[in-house]
Design a protein around this nucleic acid. Structure first.
Lengths: 228, 228
DNA sequence: GCCCGGGTTTTGAGTGGTCAAAAAACAAAG
DNA sequence: CTTTGTTTTTTGACCACTCAAAACCCGGGC
């Protein structure tokens, strides 16, 4: 049981996220999808996944796909935990922009010890979510998954709070930041227009922001709490 | 010119430190020494060093040893910079013990971006030395090397300040910490006894501390400044 | 039922880093 | 100058990870 290389960690993390993305939790992730997400050629993914299956971290069905075993799931969750705590730390403590912390965390997550991660967790007050609103697993690998609406599915007119952004692309995040679209921000959907592919929202100081529907689908919201 | 792998960085760093340890700056580091320091078999070091020579980072003379080229020296200094800034950061900001930061920094130094390192440097106020008193190279790779006395060579009786500890072993550092022997601490050498292999110093609140001569040689000191 | 195309697996090869063990070079001493 | 012992280099092999390209499987359409 050698401790997993950063390659292994990346495979597990990617499978985990792919599994989470397809709402059915038990469905298999197709090899092609995995290979693409990892930026490797399909054959490489096959080889690697077979090795992961060998060590009991994934369940692999030839020509069908792959799914994490409980062991793999736990490992993946801990990688995600490291990643998200590091991201939050870089933003909160070092003052980095949320648009640039992803790549940094992508490398640091494989180098940080549990001890360090725990100190960070503690210093940040055991936070529940990272700067993008993604939930942070606890040190045992479990986390609360909440099901949010998106700007595409939530009701018009009623006030909502932006809770999560499901895309880490730096340019996209910079765009959001420029429009004060960060988790915690109160919003109201003004209009949706399928034909024009646009969603109009009122944000900070009632500023009007128009975004495309593909982008809107990446913004998750919750009903706004009544004013405190 | 692919960016150096962490293996390459470790080779360069190790050669750099070995070169610094033997006061003659231009002398070659023997392969055996390098291999031992890197915890690899000698043949491995030979192979790797030939590759480094190929890419112009070291000067290699068969059966004689290696020395860094200017390019290699700069790279090594930047690795050292990352390492030491990270160590200081872990101590100052995250409150970790100076005995445990070395291993952590050993891994993080290969994952941290220049941008992150610069933020850390800035947050710490562009410090000159790390928690062990080792000088921190600036972002161009140059640093001020000061030549200190050690507890073995400094004059008896006169007050001195502990400035640098040249051993990163965790157990040794914990021992020092337990006796308040950290850089900045004022000391006075009470006695040295070659036969008994011991050096007696007065430290914090005049506490008497006796240490062996091999240990004493690892503690560097400077003449104490007159009281401010 | 057969074929076709897209996804998947195999195969063969390459890279970076490593070891074990045999071979070669060197230094130092007789 | 030769012998001995230590250090260094070479050789052949291996592991983890990767790719390119050929071979393969499988679900749909006809």
């Amino acid at each position: 049981m050698p401790l997993p290389s950063s390659t292994v960690e990346n495979y597990l993390k990617t499978i985990y996220k792919a599994q989470a993305a397809q709402r059915d939790h038990g469905r298999l992730v197709p090899m092609g999808h995995l290979a693409q997400a990892l930026n490797v050629v399909p054959g490489t993914a096959t080889t690697m996944v077979k090795a992961l299956a060998e060590s009991g971290l994934v369940h692999y069905e030839p020509y069908a796909g792959v799914r994490l075993t409980p062991a793999g799931e736990k490992l993946a969750a801990l990688v995600l935990r490291r990643h998200r705590l590091i991201e939050l730390f870089l933003v909160k403590v070092l003052g980095m922009s949320w648009a640039e912390v992803h790549d940094e965390a992508e490398r640091l997550e494989h180098a940080a010890s549990d001890k360090l991660i725990d100190r960070i967790d503690n210093m940040l007050g055991r936070p529940a979510t990272d700067p993008h609103g993604d939930p942070i697993p606890d040190s045992s690998g479990s986390m609360v998954v909440r099901d949010y609406q998106t700007l595409l599915t939530c009701p018009l007119g009623t006030p909502v709070v932006l809770t999560r952004v499901t895309d880490q692309d730096a340019a996209f995040l910079r765009f959001l930041e420029g429009n004060s679209l960060k988790p915690g921000q109160k919003l109201r959907i003004e209009a949706r227009d399928d034909a024009a592919d646009q969603v109009v929202v009122r944000g900070k100081r009632d500023a009007k922001i128009t975004i495309g529907m593909r982008a809107a689908a990446k913004l998750q919201v919750a009903p706004a709490e009544p004013e405190g």
